Simulated assay, not measured.
Amino acid sequence: MPTKVVFFLLPKLHLLDLAGPAQVFSTANDLGHGYDLYYVAEVDEIVTAQGIPVKARLDWPELGPADLIVVPGWRSPRFSPQAPLAAVTKQRLRTHHAGGGQVASVCSGADALGAAGLLDGRRYTTHHDLTETLAARYPKAQLIRDVLYVEDDRVITSAGIASGIDLALHLVAVQRGAEAAARVAREMVVYARRNGDELQESAMLRHRGHVSDLAHRVQDVIDSRYADQLRLAELASGVGVSERTLTRVFTAATGLTPLRYQQILRLERAENLIGHGTTIEAAARAVGFEDARMLRRLRSRPAAG
């Protein structure tokens, strides 16, 4: 079943807070990853902070634990004593989360989650201009500064404006895999990052911050077949260039040779398997190494960029 993503819209919402994440999930759906988008409000038309009216539905779709509610930011909680949210909407947010669902916010949308009681006892972030206001308003929550997004017990908050794209790409990566998120980022021509408040980034996203179509096409092949024995000649033939040209363009775009990129993908997947109890030997075989010697050698190297 497709994941339902409900955007709850408040008056004077910021367009990019809504459009950025909506584009991510819409693009993911276009690529076959199953997302249905809904736009709900307490009135049937919202005028954005940028002056554009947006139509919304008043009724909510039926939601399950796999579904997501996103509250985009609006202008601005600094000028109102509390989030302009009806009691029934606050209860709906609480009920969805209590039933196992995810709730997310962009920018000042964190104020809505706080008003619903969903920030209490949890870590969160928001736009840097709003940190002092929300820290005072929700003293039971732990504000995390200077990060793109924070996830705590199915409550996901992001910083300001464009960070909603990063949050949505992160959710696609978690729900549908890093390869899916990388493809979405490529389609949107954005720098794909998953750093949030985490220390690790998937190589599938970390090395997509370029605009070389040829390198992206080769990465698409390696991402989907990283456990296979991929010859440079096969990769070059697939994109219609010489091996020398492929190596030059790919290295300039990603900072890695195609082989090194594949090794990093294998290593990351193997580390994930080992972290979940798989033996080094079994992990090596699962990611395409003939034996564990190469995996051990790669694990002993300094972390790749």
Rank of each mutant, 00 (worst) to 15 (best):
A168E: 11
H210L: 02
Q219S: 14
V189H: 09
V241P: 07
R244F: 12
R231I: 04
A284F: 08
E234C: 00
R217A: 11
A168N: 06
S237K: 14
G196A: 06
I274F: 07
A292Y: 13
Q263E: 15
L169F: 01
T245I: 12
H170N: 12
R260K: 13
L259N: 12
L267I: 08
L235I: 05
A252T: 12
E234W: 07
E201K: 01
F289V: 05
V190Y: 08
G196K: 06
P258N: 01
D197Y: 10
E243I: 01
E268N: 04
G255A: 12
I280F: 09
E271Y: 03
A181N: 05
G255L: 07
V211H: 10
L267E: 02
V184R: 02
H216L: 03
G164H: 10
S212N: 10
D223Y: 06
A159Y: 05
S242V: 06
V218G: 01
R186V: 01
L267D: 04
Q262I: 00
G160S: 08
E179A: 14
A181K: 03
A178M: 12
L230I: 11
N272E: 15
G238E: 14
A182Y: 03
G177D: 05
L235R: 09
Y226W: 14
G209P: 04
V211M: 12
T257Y: 11
N272Q: 15
S158Q: 06
I156D: 00
A270E: 00
Q262F: 00
G164C: 05
D291C: 01
M204Y: 06
V287L: 09
E268R: 01
P258W: 01
R217F: 00
T254W: 11
E243A: 11
D220P: 00
G255I: 09
D223G: 04
L230P: 02
R154N: 14
R217Q: 15
E201M: 07
L169E: 02
A227T: 15
G160M: 04
I165Q: 01
L214D: 03
A178W: 11
V174L: 13
Y261A: 06
T157K: 07
R176G: 00
T245N: 12
R231Q: 12
R244T: 13
E290N: 13
A253V: 02
E179W: 08
I222S: 12
V218Q: 06
L205V: 02
S212H: 05
R231K: 14
T245M: 11
R266Y: 10
E151R: 14
S158N: 10
L230A: 03
H207R: 15
R154M: 09
L214K: 08
P258A: 02
S237M: 10
E243F: 06
D152E: 08
L232Y: 03
G238P: 02
A159Q: 08
H216R: 07
F289W: 15
R186G: 04
Q219H: 09
G238M: 08
N195V: 10
A173S: 13
R154F: 01
G177Y: 07
A286F: 08
T257R: 15
P258K: 02
A215C: 07
